Amino acid sequence: MTDDWQDLVVGARMSVDSEFSDRVRASSLSNSQWGLVMTAVEFDVEDADDPEHARIVADTSQLEHVLPEMQNVDQQQAMGAGGRSEPSENTSGIVGGIKAALGLGSDDDSNEELEAEAVELADEYANALQSHLEKEGRWDEVRRAAAGD
């Protein structure tokens, strides 16, 4: 698949980023953690040759490389060093950071939970991006570009 299609969705991604910020705030991920997720996730058009089944999917295989930094950001914010710019409605990230700083709980468990939530959000983002493109009447153009047509 070609990456040219990604050039076509830059504006759509900016719109979806703005709309998706409420979903991120409702999660246990901070904006900094979500930023790290987005640096690790790549988006692909699966089945681009098939107009009926083509869809945008999140390739989260590289998330493992940013998980340690996501934990660091979480712990820094929990201890007040990072200073979260927006308060989170969900305090599990703070509690998790405090537990980790005190040596309580398992890093493996918290990494798995963090990764699972990051994957879920990335998948939701991919769906939101495709929905946005469909509403704008641009999905077929993007799909064809991904297929190399």
Score class of each variant (00 low, 15 high):
1 M>L: 00
1 M>K: 00
4 D>N: 05
6 Q>F: 08
7 D>P: 01
7 D>L: 07
8 L>A: 15
9 V>Y: 10
9 V>C: 12
9 V>S: 10
10 V>R: 09
10 V>Q: 08
10 V>D: 07
11 G>M: 02
12 A>G: 00
12 A>E: 00
13 R>V: 10
13 R>K: 08
13 R>D: 05
14 M>P: 00
14 M>H: 01
22 D>A: 08
25 R>G: 04
25 R>T: 05
27 S>H: 14
27 S>R: 13
28 S>Q: 04
28 S>P: 09
29 L>G: 12
29 L>Y: 08
31 N>V: 05
32 S>W: 01
32 S>A: 13
33 Q>Y: 13
33 Q>C: 13
35 G>K: 06
37 V>N: 09
38 M>A: 03
39 T>V: 13
40 A>S: 06
42 E>F: 01
46 E>G: 00
48 A>K: 00
48 A>G: 00
48 A>L: 00
48 A>P: 00
49 D>V: 11
49 D>I: 03
53 H>D: 11
54 A>R: 06
54 A>E: 07
54 A>T: 08
56 I>E: 09
57 V>Y: 01
57 V>Q: 01
58 A>R: 07
59 D>F: 00
60 T>F: 10
60 T>W: 05
60 T>R: 02
60 T>G: 11
62 Q>I: 00
65 H>R: 05
66 V>L: 03
68 P>R: 02
71 Q>C: 05
74 D>T: 15
74 D>G: 14
74 D>R: 14
74 D>S: 15
74 D>A: 14
75 Q>F: 14
76 Q>F: 14
76 Q>S: 15
77 Q>W: 04
77 Q>T: 10
78 A>M: 01
78 A>Q: 02
78 A>K: 01
79 M>I: 01
80 G>T: 07
80 G>F: 10
81 A>M: 09
81 A>D: 09
82 G>K: 12
83 G>F: 08
84 R>P: 03
86 E>P: 02
87 P>T: 07
88 S>A: 15
88 S>M: 12
90 N>Q: 07
91 T>C: 03
92 S>Q: 05
94 I>G: 02
94 I>F: 11
96 G>V: 11
100 A>C: 07
106 S>P: 00
107 D>A: 15
107 D>R: 09
109 D>V: 13
110 S>K: 03
110 S>D: 04
110 S>P: 00
111 N>M: 13
112 E>P: 05
112 E>F: 12
112 E>Y: 09
114 L>C: 09
114 L>W: 02
115 E>T: 14
115 E>D: 07
115 E>M: 11
117 E>H: 03
118 A>N: 13
119 V>E: 05
119 V>D: 04
120 E>L: 08
123 D>V: 10
123 D>C: 06
124 E>F: 12
124 E>R: 14
124 E>Q: 15
126 A>G: 09
126 A>I: 06
129 L>V: 10
129 L>D: 10
129 L>I: 07
130 Q>F: 03
132 H>I: 01
132 H>R: 05
132 H>F: 09
132 H>W: 05
133 L>E: 08
135 K>Y: 02
135 K>V: 01
136 E>G: 03
137 G>E: 11
138 R>T: 03
139 W>A: 04
139 W>Q: 04
140 D>E: 15
141 E>Q: 08
142 V>A: 03
142 V>Q: 02
142 V>W: 03
142 V>C: 06
143 R>T: 09
143 R>I: 06
145 A>P: 06
146 A>E: 03
148 G>D: 12
